[in-house]
Structure formats: structure tokens, C-alpha cells
């Protein structure tokens, strides 16, 4: 685990649940691979947990990358304070130029503090790597995805979080297995302790199983327009109603409907985004949909950049129009069903 003078390193901090790496971590490994090939660097995976030796060897075999496993009694569940204490020294020794984590609830909790502690630059929700001369640039979206910023770290270290859905999960198994180092630490956590993970409250509908999802955003305008969303979804069998965070915050739909980084990730056959601007937070949760239809009054809305069919209209008048036409065109089909 020595950081040689010639080759700077990349460190990926792995996130795991129930003995399995999270999908975001796998995507972050693909991100690291791209960075590796661009700069001729070497990636090390750093993973912290209570008893993770088995997992550590699995990962080394699966990825071919060197893995540093940090074991400690207080590392059973993620906790910012105990993770920082556990990671600080091994990372200082490894001295990576880039430290990467998924832009998950763990990643954005940990990355900014880690950056301050390690005197590093911090760029969150990275969605693309670019190169301009000798500079490596990291792209991220701002202002509801309307503009993309390219940033370059100007200190010798950077902590990066990788936006989900921006890189594929790696496929194939490497020929050689990576080296494993296990460190045991006795870090004492004084000021913060994670007690438990509470499971989600179950809702009566299942967004994950729906073949068609009709989602409402802030463009719904008012709660009185919500029946339009339900009526549109009823045109499709096996459908469900989703929502952007803004629609949930407005109190129109409860948080069980929310799609995005903090909500659910879905990949239906058809996703109909109604009045959704398309923040990166939301897009990350529905990018995997097979077909996307977007209805929005703003032709510059970011949702149109991921849509297969773009409709610049006000949903309040457009949806009734679709429903009326549907009944004219297909009412005979419907009756025969």
C-alpha cells in the first residue's frame, strides 16, 4: 500500500450494504478506470467495515485492483466520524491524487469533510471527465441541469463524488486478482454513533415493478391538477405515479413516490415526465428508462436532454387533450379488453 513516487494513485472508497458493494460503488470503479487510463494512474479500493475480510478478497478478485480493508468495531455501519478517523491515516500513506466515492448519502456526507481534513479540493456529483492540454477537468451540472461547469483541482489532491447513472458498472472478470491489505484499527468514536438503519415504510404501490411511470414535477402548478397525472397513468396497464422531490415538497404527493438520488431508482419501459425540469438529482433516478416522454412548458428544460420524445406544452391542457384523443381513437379497444 506504499504510494510510490513515480505513480500517483487513485483511491476509491467503497460503499457496501449487507456484504455487497452498492451499484454506485461499481459505477465509481468505472469512473476510476477512465481516470486511470487518462493519466496512467493506479486504482486502490479502500473499504471500511466491522468484519470485511471475506468481502475484501472478493473485491480484489472481482476487480483485479488492490484493496485495503480497514476493520474496526465501530465501523459496522457508516458513521461520518468513525469513517474519517479510520480513513485518514491509510489515505495519507497512500497519498492518492484522486479520492473517489459515489455521490450517495454516504458520499456527500463524507467527501466534504474528508477534503478539508486532507487539504484536498472537493468536486461533487461529477458526471464526465475531460482533458484540456495537461489539465483534467471534471464536469458537473448546475441550475437544474441547464449549464455544465468544468472544474479543475488546483491542489495536489482532490476528493470527487461520482453521480449515479453517469458510468456503467464494469463487466468481465480480470485475469489476475488484486493484492489485499487488512488493517485493524481501534478508533474510538466520541461524538457520533450510528445506531441503526431503519427500513423504508412500505407503500401500497410498487414503482420498481411498474412498466409505465407517469411522474409529476413542480410544473404541475397546483394540487388540483394531480388527478390529471393519475388519469394519464390509468391509460397504461401496470402503471404507477412518480414524482420529483419538488412535487413531494409541495405536499402534492408523499415521499414514497419520489424518484431520484434520495428517492427510488426506476427503469420502466416508459417514463412520462410531466412538468419536471430535470435536475441531475431526478435524472439520476430515471435515466435507465427504456423510453422517456417529457412534457414541459420550458423548451430549455434539462429533462428534454434525456427524453426520446419532447413535448413543449402545458400539462394542464395537454394531458386532457391526450386523454380525449385516446378515447376517440382507442375506445373500441378498451371496451373489448
Amino acid at each position: 500500500m506504499k504510494g510510490t513516487m513515480e505513480t500517483r494513485q487513485i483511491a476509491v472508497i467503497a460503499e457496501h450494504r449487507n456484504g455487497v458493494l452498492t451499484p454506485g460503488t461499481l459505477e465509481t470503479l468505472s469512473f476510476a478506470r477512465e481516470l486511470e487510463s487518462l493519466l496512467n494512474l493506479k486504482t486502490n479500493i479502500v473499504i471500511a467495515g466491522k468484519s470485511i475480510e471475506g468481502l475484501t478478497y472478493d473485491i480484489a478478485g472481482m476487480t483485479g485492483m488492490d484493496v485495503i480493508g480497514i476493520e474496526g468495531e465501530n465501523l459496522d455501519l457508516y458513521n461520518c466520524e468513525s469513517y474519517l478517523a479510520a480513513l485518514e491515516k491509510p489515505l495519507e500513506e497512500l497519498d492518492p491524487a484522486y479520492i473517489c466515492t459515489p455521490h450517495s448519502a454516504m458520499g456527500y456526507d463524507l467527501a466534504p469533510r474528508l477534503a478539508v481534513r486532507l487539504k484536498a479540493s472537493c468536486i461533487t456529483a461529477v458526471e464526465k471527465i475531460g482533458k484540456k492540454g495537461k489539465s483534467v477537468l471534471f464536469s458537473r451540472s448546475q441550475w437544474n441541469g441547464k449549464i455544465i461547469l468544468e472544474k479543475e483541482p488546483v491542489v495536489k489532491r482532490a476528493v470527487l463524488t461520482v453521480l449515479s447513472g453517469s458510468w456503467p458498472e464494469p463487466d468481465g472478470r480480470p485475469e489476475k486478482t488484486g493484492e489485499v491489505t487488512i488493517i485493524t484499527i481501534a478508533a474510538e468514536t466520541k461524538n457520533s454513533r450510528t445506531i441503526e438503519i431503519r427500513e423504508a415504510v412500505r407503500t401500497g404501490f410498487d414503482l420498481a415493478k411498474a412498466e409505465v411511470i407517469v411522474s409529476a414535477g413542480k410544473g404541475l402548478g397546483k394540487e388540483e391538477n394531480l388527478p390529471l397525472i393519475y388519469k394519464l397513468s390509468e391509460l397504461f396497464p401496470k402503471s404507477a405515479v412518480g414524482a420529483s422531490r419538488a412535487a413531494c415538497d409541495a405536499g402534492w404527493l408523499d415521499y414514497g413516490h419520489q424518484i431520484g438520488i434520495t428517492g427510488k431508482t426506476v427503469s420502466p419501459k416508459l417514463y412520462v415526465a410531466c412538468g419536471i425540469s430535470g435536475s441531475t438529482q431526478h435524472i439520476a433516478g430515471m435515466k435507465g428508462s427504456q423510453m422517456v416522454v417529457a412534457i414541459n412548458t420550458d423548451p430549455a428544460a434539462a429533462i428534454f436532454s434525456v427524453a426520446d420524445y419532447c413535448i413543449v406544452e402545458d400539462l394542464a391542457t395537454f394531458i386532457p387533450c391526450v386523454i380525449e384523443k385516446y378515447h376517440k381513437l382507442f375506445s373500441s379497444h378498451k371496451e373489448s379488453e
Binding site: E150, K151, E152, A294, A307, E313, K325, L329
Partner: peptide, 30 residues
């Protein structure tokens, strides 16, 4: 600790088809 190098508009990820016409025609196309 980092500098902003450039700003740009996002490129369309998919070549989405923009439905044309009046509201009724767009509903029909959809």
C-alpha cells in the same frame, strides 16, 4: 482549491424527437 475552467450548455444525451404541430396534433402523434 479548484478553478472553474469552462461553462457550457449540456449536449443532448439522446437525439430526442420534438413533436410538432398544435396541441391536438402533438397529442395525436404521441
Amino acid at each position: 482549491r479548484e478553478r472553474m475552467v469552462a461553462l457550457r450548455y449540456p449536449e443532448a444525451l439522446s437525439k430526442g424527437i420534438v413533436l410538432e404541430g398544435n396541441e391536438g396534433e402533438k397529442a395525436g402523434s404521441l
